[in-house]
Amino acid sequence: MNNRDTTSNPSDSPSRSNPANSWSEDRRSDADIEEIARLLPPPTPRGLPHEQHLHHKERLMRRIDRDQADRTDQARSGPRPARRLLRPALLVPVTALALGAILTTGVVLTTDDDAPATSATGQHDARGMKPAAALLDQISDAAGKGDAQKVRDDQFIYTRAKVREADLTSGKAVVSPVRDVESWASQQPGPLHKLGLTRENGETLPINAQLGDTDGTPEGLDRPTYHWLSSLPTDPDKLLAHLYAKTPKSDGAERDQAVFDRIGSLLGGVMPPKTAAALYRAAAKIPGVTKLPAAKDLTGRTGVAIARDDTTFGARTEWVFDPRDFTFLGSRSHLFKDTRYGKAGTLMSAQAVIDHAVVDKAGQAPAASRES
């Protein structure tokens, strides 16, 4: 029962003194709530990967922001209100999510060239290692030989990637074209409310703190600064235990897959060599990790891949590496069985790392960029 006192009182405002006005305001409020509710996606399966939750939450909130701004413009004259700052789903490095997932994930329909590669056999190499562990051992050795960079707290990590995704909010994959996405991630320890910038289709927008971080988002798994990455254990066993402890749990999601995806979300940017080497050796210890002898990134670059199948969601995630120097090229994910979103072979989140660097200001391009 509505306990609002609608009795006329000279001291009340005009809207409170008039029951009809109050009732009209309530109806407008209810209509706004119903409009927002219609924008919500249908319930997703419990096995939906963490990066997809971030992706769809970001898309939904951006659409709500725009719709609210449109309604405000219609109700009053004057300039359009500033759009709410973007959230850090776009700040995660360009893997398994990337900018977002970094970069962020969705579903993409494949062509024949995108057909999933078959897994290698379970044979061991001459050192007694399984193919995936042997490949990750080689990748780890190559990563560990890289030069450590000096990254100041006042600088930004620049990443450019090509991304293709699809919107799942309708319950089916709606494919986007390939897009160029640039991001600048602040390296300040935080917690921060403004985490950097992202640029797409000529539009540059700030990235806001993660939803729920009212005091700002600190550095960590959701905002991996160079300083934070340097603080991680470099012993693979200790690092893996740390990641299992810090990766949020989700009902119905595979724990091993969640940690595999978390490691994937850290790849593709500027990272301390010792940390990179430890991450690859830690990934080799996750059950279900396999080697693919051939794979392609979004730009068509051919490489070798490390993969893992998420049996709950029915998707295979691949990390693609240059076969010559084991540079990380990008990641891709596709369905290996029919699901409500598409048939087996439907590709989820394809993206390719084009460039990364350390710059002094957000929005600044690196002095020399690798050509796509």
Score class of each variant (00 low, 15 high):
A245R: 10
L221G: 14
K172N: 04
H124Q: 07
L192K: 00
A143G: 09
G220C: 08
K145Y: 01
Y244M: 15
S186W: 00
Q138C: 05
H124F: 01
R160Q: 13
A126H: 03
D167W: 00
S170M: 02
K162D: 12
P189F: 00
R127T: 09
D237L: 10
T217E: 11
A241I: 10
A148R: 13
Y158N: 10
L197Q: 03
V178S: 03
D141K: 10
A126D: 08
M129Y: 03
I157K: 10
R160S: 10
A126K: 06
S186P: 00
K238V: 15
A173K: 05
A161N: 06
R160T: 02
K150H: 12
D147E: 14
A148I: 11
G212H: 09
Q155N: 12
T234K: 13
S230M: 11
F156A: 07
T217N: 08
R127W: 01
D137Q: 10
V178K: 03
T204Q: 06
K238S: 15
L168V: 09
D153V: 14
T234D: 14
L192I: 02
W228S: 14
P177Y: 00
V151A: 08
G216Y: 07
K145T: 08
L232S: 14
W184Y: 03
G202A: 03
P218D: 14
A132H: 04
G128T: 02
R199H: 03
Y158D: 12
G171D: 06
S230G: 15
E219R: 10
E219C: 12
D153E: 15
